[in-house]
Design a protein around this nucleic acid. Structure first.
Length: 468
DNA sequence: CGAGGAGCGA
DNA sequence: ACGTCGCTCCTCGA
């Protein structure tokens, strides 16, 4: 069967749950879909045109055999293998963590009821609104459909003056970890003690994969309970290890590559600390770059990729909007090639109505010529961000295909078991780890033609400990 | 069962 | 108005 056909089939399958014991069964199942139906065409178009309004523009359909189709179809069996293999998780430990968290939130609930003087459910936004704004008459903030927001930004503000807000925040953090991760993941453990997620190839407008039932791409990271939860993901076999490989600064490096900005490329080339490097130009009079300056520069570096506004940046770094706007301007002054790249990209998009990448991903962007500045700026953010995110997603997909081929050719027992956007996770016998590291590094670092993207690799006994 | 609110990751 | 995307949890009312 031609590869292009494989792609259509995978797209048709994307709405159904893929739980398969091996690729043979998977192949048989996709044959059933292959014969039919409109869903194939529909899903296929969806993969290319996230903007549904343009789905009828048939003449814009990519020709069979193009690079995106080839990549997606080569990725398909790799994903099938990962899903079928699954990830081993420690059920007992997840259960223990869940019980601990349940105990913690129960205690907090009692403490809060004691403080307020009447029972209420802190999981209910409506009841929290009542307690804070009606009963305690605390000044409210953001307006939402159902009254006033009680989200974490609001509660953090209120928490400066009222202990109850901090207790609710703490309660929520335990409940999130308990319900979604400790107990949520526990429910997903199947026979063999493994969790089998489903990777969706056509869910996002940015070319990324998504992961569902369960979502393994938003497992919490950090110290304490998040680390304990991540630590539950570990090999079932004695003597096996995890190997975690993640791209360092992939989007910023891709922006450097796409824009050919000399300063940005040079900073990366010299192996500089890119955030400290940017900080030098945001704070030209500073003798030394402080931690705080680096933090601000880091936020600017990331923010530029997403088209952050002065206002948005000011909220994140806690300065005035004017000051934040100045930092963004300083970034574009220093990295003027990025500005030029964005300008050229937008100029072309305004004329053609779409943005595209070298590989052939395309997206129509509405609003680039709108008279409303908000709509126009929003469209420009979308247009400038898209090629960077797309390219990053394609790099990882290409790396996955390449790694899978090399593992097969090298007759490795080790296998790829997870993808978290810029991170790939493997498990295998400890004896294979040194060779596995070399293989994975080579495949990942060379996945963007013409530019070597550095990768951080670490091994460990579980997902939490395998970090540099 | 779906909408709304909230929060997790990249 | 203020960055974006996608997934899942809980509550609440139809």
């Amino acid at each position: 069967m031609p590869k292009f056909q494989d792609l259509k089939i995978s797209l048709a399958l994307s709405d159904s749950k893929r739980k398969i014991s091996d690729f043979r069964e998977y192949a048989e199942r996709i044959h059933e879909y292959a014969a039919s139906d409109d869903a194939v065409t529909e899903a296929f178009e969806r993969a290319y045109f996230a903007d549904k309004d343009f789905r009828d523009e048939k003449e814009m359909l990519p020709p069979p055999g193009d690079a995106v189709a080839a990549l997606e179809s080569e990725l398909l069996p790799v994903l099938a293998q990962m899903e079928a293999t699954g990830v081993h998780a420690d059920a007992k430990e997840l259960r223990d963590i869940g019980e601990e968290l349940r105990e913690k939130s129960k205690n907090l609930e009692l403490e809060m009821i004691d403080l307020i003087g009447e029972p209420f459910n802190p999981n209910s936004a409506k009841q929290v609104q009542y307690v804070l704004f009606d009963k305690l008459k605390i000044p409210s903030g953001k307006k939402i459909k159902t009254g006033f927001s009680v989200d974490s930004d609001t509660l953090e503000e209120i928490g400066k003056n009222y202990a109850i807000a901090n207790l609710i925040l703490e309660y929520r953090s335990y409940e999130k970890l308990r319900a979604t991760y400790a107990e949520g993941l526990l429910k997903e453990i199947g026979e063999g003690g493994r969790i089998h997620t489903t990777y969706n190839q056509v869910a996002t407008s940015t070319g990324r994969l998504s992961s569902e039932s369960p979502n393994l791409q938003n497992v919490p990271s950090g110290e304490g309970y998040p680390a304990r939860i991540k630590g539950c993901f570990r090999p079932a076999e004695a003597g096996w290890k995890y190997l975690v490989a993640d791209y360092s600064q992939i989007e910023l490096r891709i922006l450097a590559h796409l824009s050919s900005d000399g300063a940005l490329l040079n900073a990366f080339e010299l192996g500089r600390d890119i955030h400290a490097e940017t900080a030098k130009f945001l704070f030209p009079t500073a003798k030394e770059i402080s931690k705080d300056m680096r933090r601000i520069a880091k936020t600017v570096n990331f923010g530029v990729i997403y088209g952050i506004t002065g206002f948005g940046l000011s909220k994140t770094i806690g300065t005035s909007p004017a000051e934040a706007t100045g930092y963004i301007a300083a970034f574009f002054e220093r990295y003027s090639g990025v500005r030029a790249y964005y300008d050229a990209l937008l100029e072309k998009a305004r004329t053609t109505g779409y943005v595209e990448t070298a590989l052939g991903r395309k997206r129509f962007v509405k609003g680039l010529n709108d008279s409303n500045q908000n709509i126009r700026k929003g469209a420009e953010r979308e247009a400038t961000n898209m090629p960077v995110q797309w390219t990053a997603a394609d790099v990882v997909k290409r790396a996955m295909v390449s790694v899978a081929e090399r593992l097969k050719r090298g007759k490795f027992e080790s296998r790829m078991i997870m993808q978290v956007h810029d991170e790939l996770v493997f498990e295998g016998p400890e004896s294979e780890m040194p060779d596995l590291e070399i293989l994975v590094r080579e495949a990942m670092e060379t996945a963007l033609p013409g530019y070597r993207l550095p990768v951080d690799i670490a091994t460990g006994s579980n997902w939490a400990s395998a970090k540099g």
